[in-house]
Write a protein that binds this DNA or RNA. Structure first.
Length: 608
RNA sequence: CGGGACGUAGCUCAGCUUGGUAGAGCGCGCGCUUUGGGAGCGUGAGGUCGCAGGUUCAAAUCCUGUCGUCCCGACCA
């Protein structure tokens, strides 16, 4: 049966909703696909639900095709599994917590690693049972500080999450590659352009990881791209390390007066005035900025450390947080924040504004930063600080800087650490040229989790030698509701939505115009024939609505093909509008069925 | 969590400065006309003015608080 506009639960809106900013939000609301019901929560209306279900089914088919088995967990979960992995705490304000009548703690699941792990633990205990891939399509909850942009960032959303359980890393690699290919196919079939970018494992605690981003100005993620095809999230770019420099001939470091130069900009200005360079002028990139930071450990203890970066670059706190537990040798996921005046005041040797790795005094070079130095403060450097590189940096004396301080000769460090964000124009790791930055929406993310969750929840199986081994896991997600928004964002024009055939709420929108019964009878008959041929029809059978209203609604709703049954009928023709090709043609009634069916099939196949 | 803007009918908005019985357009009902690009005329239904306090004879309007929305930033698989 075709969907009939006369009875469809739908009210299109003439004006953009006042609270909408991005195109997908405006159009999905105006065309009657979704309706806001709560802060960060949307109701799926009949048309929207059809699109959402189609997206889900494509995902489901491709997951099944790689051997995935669908299960379904509750969204309301007890806290214990999440406590076992530390995420009850780690998620902070990011999850919804609640209590039942007896006071027991629950949460609305933001993701289900723990539950999948426990499920496999319940059932399996031998390597012979592995590999196994399980997935679900589930509502997830996150207490977003700022829901925005309609379905793009919400507090309740639908996600496909799958998990692979394998006996070893080889198995994980295979599972990862299969998911990767499945994801490429899924987005092809959806008609959504995505690029796979290298990602940081982040809170998930894994190793290899890629994000599938839909390039879009409305996206919230930034990634970089090289001419040679290297792509990575800005957080995950490996800094290109410069060649080390032979410093045997380098002049000795020299302390100079640099009054009132506690910022890099001021330092460069003062240096050019008071200590001019032989050739050219000093640049910020030649200075070494020693930034004092604090890691707030899980116990609340504040651990001071210093990171040195080229003066023209900013420290990226988020990046640091990924590397700092290793660098400091601490457990948990400490937060990194700028050191406070109190933090710094505890170290009498630190001269704020003039901090540097070395104090030159009476011909001696005294290390001031590093665990084995005067201060004992851990000291890390950006990868650009290579052996032999020469810097202008703080002299650890008020109003003085040291010039020509050479790395490895005049100072050392505890570890090299990725501490700065990548910039447009930075060299690409693949050596193919400068990196360019672009924006994208995160549509999917695949991770090699490794053994973190299996270890925390004690998921072990017996291997072929009868020995207990920890299972290796991978985790793979696709945002279903976000994909609907991204599709709307990617496929629309000034008149309305234009869905790809595979996700459209219907394949053909039949518009009957006029008032004669013959027209509606012919339209009805044609709709029935199309449906019999397996084509989904949205039929505008409204008798009173004017043609203009029907055309506008059809364009707004965005079914890709419109078939107009109206004034052409007298001479035996129908009018076919193709919203993707932006064409219209009159076709003879006799050929129309075959023609339309063929066109629908063509679009379905061209999208996968 | 910081900075800014805004909450009045299903939707888009006016009214608030200067307190005095709640408004328009679209949408919805009914009637007539119109009928291939959001048509016209007539006639209706529909609102605790986000919520809670306060000031006042009287509050959509003034004050305080609170909740929510949007934008920028922070945060965020």
């Amino acid at each position: 049966m075709p969907l009939r506009m006369s009875s469809l639960f739908l009210r299109t809106l003439r004006d953009d909703p006042a609270d909408a900013e991005v195109a997908s939000h405006k159009l999905l609301v105006r065309a009657g696909y979704i309706r806001r019901a709560a802060p960060g929560g949307y109701t799926w209306l009949p048309l929207g639900l059809r699109v959402k279900n189609k997206v889900e089914n494509i995902v489901r088919e491709e997951m099944n095709a790689i051997g995935g088995q669908e299960v379904h967990f509750p969204a309301l979960l007890p806290k214990e599994p999440y406590e076992a992995t530390g995420r009850w705490e780690d998620y902070g304000d990011g999850i919804f917590r609640l209590q039942d009548r007896s006071g027991s703690d629950f949460l609305l699941a933001p993701t289900h690693e723990e539950l999948f792990t426990l499920l496999v633990k319940d059932h399996y205990s031998s390597y012979k049972d592995l590999p196994v891939y399980l997935y679900q399509i589930q509502t997830k909850y996150r207490d977003e500080a700022r829901p925005r942009a309609g379905l793009l960032r919400v507090r309740e959303f639908i996600m496909k999450d799958s998990y692979s359980f394998t006996i070893d890393q080889d198995g994980l690699n295979e599972a990862y590659d299969k998911h990767r290919l499945a994801y490429v196919r899924i987005f092809e079939r959806l008609g959504l352009e995505v690029v796979a970018v290298q990602a940081m494992a982040g809170a998930m605690g894994g190793s290899r990881s890629e994000e599938f981003l839909h390039p879009s100005a409305a996206g919230e993620d930034t990634f970089v791209e090289s001419p040679g095809g290297y792509r990575a999230n800005v957080e995950a770019v490996d800094t290109v390390v410069p060649e080390t420099i032979d410093y045997t001939e380098a002049p000795a470091a020299e302390v100079k007066d640099t009054p009132v130069s506690t910022t890099i900009a001021a330092l460069v200005e003062v240096a050019n005035e008071l200590a001019p360079k032989d050739n050219g002028s000093w640049e910020a990139s030649e200075t070494l900025k020693c930034v004092v930071l604090t890691a707030v450990l899980d116990g609340g203890e504040r651990q001071l450390f210093v990171v040195a970066v080229p003066g023209d670059r900013e420290v990226d706190v988020k990046r640091l947080e990924a590397f700092i537990p290793d660098a400091l040798g601490v457990a948990g996921e400490p937060e990194v924040e700028p050191a406070t005046h109190d933090d710094i005041a505890k170290h009498a040797n630190l001269v704020p504004g003039y901090i540097g790795p070395t104090l030159l005094q009476d011909g001696n070079a005294i290390p001031m930063l590093g665990t084995k130095s005067q201060t004992g403060i851990p000291f890390f450097v950006d990868p650009r600080i290579v052996s032999g590189s020469s810097w202008v940096t703080g002299a650890n004396q008020d109003q003085k800087h040291v010039f020509g301080l050479v790395a490895d000769r005049d100072f050392t460090w505890d570890a090299v650490i990725e501490a700065t964000a990548v910039r447009d124009g930075d060299p690409a790791p693949d050596g193919s040229g400068p990196l360019a930055t672009r924006r994208g929406m995160e549509m999917g993310h695949i991770f090699q989790l490794g053994r973190k969750y299996a270890e925390a929840l004690d998921l072990k199986v017996l291997d072929e030698h009868g020995k207990q081994v920890v299972v290796t896991m991978g985790s793979y997600g696709i945002g279903i509701s976000r994909a609907v928004a991204a599709l709307a964002e990617a496929h629309h024009d000034d008149k309305g939505l234009i869905w790809p055939m595979n996700v459209a709420p219907a394949h053909v929108h039949i518009v009957a115009t006029g008032k004669d019964d013959e027209i509606f009878e012919a339209a009805e008959e044609f709709a029935t024939k199309l449906e019999a041929a397996g084509v989904e029809v949205l039929y505008d059978d409204r008798r009173k609505a004017q043609a203009g209203v029907k055309f506008s609604d059809a364009e707004l709703i965005g079914v890709p093909l419109h078939l107009i049954v109206g004034r052409g009928l007298a001479k035996g023709t129908l009018e076919l509008k193709d919203r993707h090709a932006d064409t219209r043609e009159d076709i003879p009634l006799d050929d129309a069925l075959d023609h339309v069916v063929a066109l629908v099939r063509k679009y379905q196949n061209s999208q996968g």
